Amino acid sequence: MKQYRINGAEVHGIPDLYEQFNRELMAEEDWRLGSSLDGLNDVLYRVDSEIRDGDPAVFVWTNHALSRDALGFDETQRWLQNKLAQPTSFNQQRIQSDLDELRNGAGKTYFELILEVFADHPLIELELR
């Protein structure tokens, strides 16, 4: 079984998380995964295909509570505000709606969005420790 490790104690923001994803998932690639939920989703499809070929995989996320805090409200708000600052790159209406929902307590944090990406890949086991 292939095991990927994420150390939540080393995650202080979104870029730190993707540094760990790159270390774990992209070591044999000649390109790096950017801070993108869509990009992460695409790379996890590669892991899905490896699992289907008989190579099970598990992600072990230690100190995940620290990541939950680091990728919580403040970091998510910064991430959404950065997207709003790029009006030609993102759907501004949707981003503003996401930001409003976050501020009203109904929106998802970046940590929760990451968990949703993993949930879209039921063959991949995610252990939060």
Rank of each mutant, 00 (worst) to 15 (best):
W61S: 04
D42S: 09
A85R: 12
M26L: 12
Q93P: 05
E24N: 06
N82S: 08
Q3F: 02
A119L: 01
K2R: 08
R46N: 12
E112C: 02
A27F: 15
T62N: 05
T76A: 07
P15E: 01
I95K: 04
R23E: 08
V60N: 12
L123T: 12
V11G: 13
G105T: 02
S36L: 04
L123D: 07
L33P: 01
A57Q: 00
I6Q: 10
S89T: 00
N63S: 09
M26D: 08
E75T: 06
L66S: 14
V47K: 04
S36P: 04
L40Q: 07
G13T: 03
Q93D: 12
R5E: 08
L37V: 08
Q81C: 08
H121Y: 03
Y110D: 05
N91A: 09
D53S: 11
E101S: 15
R23H: 14
Q93W: 05
K2S: 09
R52S: 13
L113E: 14
A70K: 14
S67A: 13
E50Q: 12
G54K: 10
H64N: 13
R68P: 01
M1Q: 10
E24M: 11
E19A: 14
G13F: 04
H121A: 05
R46Q: 09
D74I: 07
L102S: 13
Q92V: 11
R78Q: 05
A119K: 13
L17Y: 09
S36M: 03
V117F: 09
L40M: 11
S36K: 06
G105V: 01
S97A: 14
T88R: 06
D98R: 03
N104D: 14
R103M: 09
L115G: 00
F73C: 03
Y110A: 05
F59A: 04
A85S: 12
V47R: 03
Q96T: 11
E116Q: 11
I95Y: 02
R103S: 07
E28C: 08
P87H: 07
V43Q: 07
R5K: 15
F90I: 09
A119T: 14
H12A: 06
L37Y: 15
E112T: 01
F73K: 09
L123Q: 12
I95R: 02
K83P: 03
L17E: 02
A119G: 10
Q93A: 13
L102P: 10
L113S: 14
Q20I: 06
E101W: 03
H12S: 09
S35H: 02
A9Y: 07
F21S: 10
K2E: 12
E75G: 03
Y110Q: 06
M1L: 12
E127L: 14
D74P: 00
W79P: 04
P87R: 05
E127H: 13
A65P: 00
V11R: 11
L123P: 01
H121S: 03
L99K: 11
E127S: 06
V43D: 05
D120Y: 11
Q77Y: 05
P87S: 07
I124H: 05
F111I: 00
S35Y: 03
R129D: 14
